[in-house]
């Protein structure tokens, strides 16, 4: 419960930040003829909505966290694994250019399996199945270049 409260706070701050960014960035957008609001109007409204609702959820989560035993993050190892996969996804375009489509797909499938502590037989089976599937379906059947 405390973990969800923590992520609620993070989500609320994220919404608040996105709303604020939308408000600030939309100020630089042009107006329509006659001084009517143009492309900035809709993002501006969404910005206000996100700022207000983000603040509401943040305060609500803080109040409820006060009633409970506080805010904590459980599963540090899980968080490290999650961040590891996210960071590795940032490398995907480079891997794709250097290694090609099949090795990249297989590498990600194996990486996730290993982080989830799969047995080596399972890892091997996933690697072979992934490679075959990508080759047959994506490269041969659909003609995806890679």
């Amino acid at each position: 419960m405390a973990t969800e409260r923590f992520w609620e706070l993070v989500g609320a701050l994220l919404a608040f930040g996105l709303g604020l960014a939308a408000l600030i960035l939309s100020r630089g957008l042009p107006q329509m003829e006659g001084g009517y609001p143009g492309p900035a109007l809709f993002p501006g409204i969404l910005g206000v909505l996100l700022v207000c609702c983000g603040l509401g959820v943040f305060l609500g989560a803080l109040l409820q966290a006060g009633h409970s035993r506080g805010v904590a993050v459980e599963g540090r190892k899980g968080l490290v694994n999650t961040l590891g996969v996210l960071l590795s996804l940032g490398l995907a375009p480079v891997m794709l250019a250097r290694l090609g489509l099949i090795p990249t797909a297989v590498a990600y499938a194996l990486f996730a399996c290993l982080l989830l502590r799969a047995r080596w037989q399972e890892v091997l089976a996933v690697g072979v199945a992934m490679g075959l599937f990508v080759y047959v379906v994506f490269m041969r059947f659909l003609g995806v270049q890679g």
């Binding site: 996969v85 996804l89 995907a92 375009p93 794709l96 250019a97 489509l101 990249t104 797909a105 297989v106 990600y108 499938a109 194996l110 990486f111 996730a112 399996c113 989830l116 502590r117 799969a118 399972e122 890892v123 089976a125 996933v126 199945a129 992934m130 599937f133 990508v134 994506f138 659909l142 995806v144 270049q145 890679g146």
Partner: peptide, 25 residues
């Protein structure tokens, strides 16, 4: 755990396949 490994691999390939654009990753 094996299914999730497949899902991640498919996410990467599927995303690239949509536009053949590495930026999408």
């Amino acid at each position: 755990r094996a299914l999730m490994g497949m899902v991640l691999g498919l996410c990467v390939v599927g995303t690239y396949a949509v536009n053949n654009n590495p930026f999408d990753l």
